[in-house]
Amino acid sequence: MKRLPIIPTIIVAIAIAVMIGLGVWQLQRRGEKEAALTRLAANVERPPIAFPAAGSGNAALFRRSSLTCSRATNLRLEGGRSADGGTGWRVLADCPVEAGRVAVVQLGIAGKPDARPAWAGGVVTGHISYAPDARPLLSALYDRRPRALMLVANPPLAGLRANPGPDLSAVPNNHLAYAGQWFLFAGIAAVIYALALRRRARS
């Protein structure tokens, strides 16, 4: 019987241990995320706050807020849904605020992708949500920079349809799936190495 290859076995064992560790870490992150979601659900009923133009992370998500947009710029449309669940196009605008920063405002939902709502600016009230994120999905998984926030108008502006209300599903909670993937990878690595050792022993 051939001796067990020491160095390859150590390397595979370390790799499997790392993958199991990552799976356990994702399970811990799942518990943290569920606690955070509970806090976010309570934000809907908390008192209004000033819009965090510089961004203040998830702590401000779904809080009621307002801002005064002195000059709306860069009006654009992106796919989305209205308050009644119908499909449409979110109308977004940039509003200059203090210190040269720009706040993103979702005015409402348009029925056509070529809509050109007229809105020059004014007072916007509503709730805080995530602004559209242009980062690739894979990059967003490892990029720990906080996502930008925007103010979703309620009531809608410029004659548009109503925006949907605060939605907890906008906050990803895929840690259980990630944990399962790491455990699966660890199991596959163990099986492949065991088969390789078996084949080696027979040769």
Score class of each variant (00 low, 15 high):
Leu184Asp: 11
Gly180Leu: 12
Arg135Gln: 08
Ala54Leu: 09
Arg199Lys: 13
Leu197Arg: 04
Gln28Val: 13
Ala60Val: 10
Leu61Ser: 09
Ala13Cys: 13
Gly159Trp: 08
Arg200Gly: 14
Asn163His: 00
Pro164Val: 02
Ile188Gln: 10
Val24His: 13
Ala201Arg: 13
Thr38Gln: 14
Pro52Asp: 08
Gly86Gln: 05
Gln28Lys: 15
Arg71Glu: 12
Ala189Arg: 07
Asn174Lys: 13
Gly100Ile: 07
Ala162Asp: 03
Ala17Gln: 07
Thr38His: 15
Arg90Leu: 07
Cys95Ser: 05
Asp167Glu: 02
Asn43Thr: 05
Pro164Ala: 00
Asn58Asp: 12
Thr87Cys: 07
Arg199Trp: 11
Asn154His: 13
Gln106Trp: 08
Arg145Lys: 12
Val152Leu: 09
Lys112Leu: 12
Leu151Val: 06
Tyr193Ile: 05
Leu22Gln: 09
Leu107Ile: 02
Ile16Gln: 06
Val105Ile: 10
Ser70Asn: 13
Arg147Tyr: 09
Leu176Pro: 08
Phe62Gln: 03
Glu34Arg: 15
Ala134Ser: 11
Phe62Ser: 03
Ala103Glu: 06
Gln181Ile: 10
Leu77Val: 01
Ala120Met: 14
Ser82Trp: 01
Asn43His: 05
Phe183Gly: 01
Val152Cys: 06
Gly55Pro: 00
Asp133Asn: 10
Ala158Gln: 06
Leu37Ser: 03
Val124His: 01
Ala50Glu: 08
Leu4Ala: 04
Ala131Ile: 03
Tyr142Val: 15
Ile128Met: 05
Asp114Tyr: 04
Arg147Asp: 14
Ile11Leu: 11
Ala50Tyr: 04
Glu98Ala: 13
Ala140Ile: 05
Arg71Gln: 12
Gly79Phe: 03
Trp182Gln: 08
Ile16Arg: 13
Gly86Trp: 01
Leu22Pro: 04
Pro8Gln: 06
Ser203Asn: 15
Ile11Ser: 07
Leu195Lys: 15
Val97Pro: 04
Leu160Pro: 00
Gly86Lys: 07
Val191Cys: 06
Arg147Gly: 11
Arg200Ile: 09
Gln26Arg: 03
Asp167Ser: 04
Ala162Tyr: 01
Leu168Gln: 12
Ile7Met: 08
Ala13Gln: 07
Ala54Asp: 12
Ala162Cys: 04
Arg200Glu: 10
Ile11Tyr: 11
Thr68Ala: 12
Glu78Val: 11
Arg71Asn: 14
Arg39Gln: 14
Ala103Cys: 04
Arg76Asn: 08
Ala50Cys: 07
Leu184Lys: 07
Thr73Glu: 15
Glu98Cys: 10
Ala15Val: 10
Arg101Trp: 06
Asn154Gly: 15
Thr125His: 10
Pro146Glu: 03
Phe183Asp: 07
Ser66Leu: 11
Ala118Ser: 14
Ala120Cys: 09
Gly21His: 04
Ala170Arg: 13
Cys69His: 02
Ala72Trp: 04
Val105Trp: 01
Tyr142Phe: 15
His127Pro: 01
Ala13Gly: 11
Asn58Gln: 14
Arg135Gly: 01
Gly126Trp: 02
Arg198Trp: 15
Pro52Phe: 02
Ser65Asp: 02
Arg198Met: 13
Ala59Ser: 12
Gly23Asp: 05
Asn154Ile: 07
Glu34Lys: 15
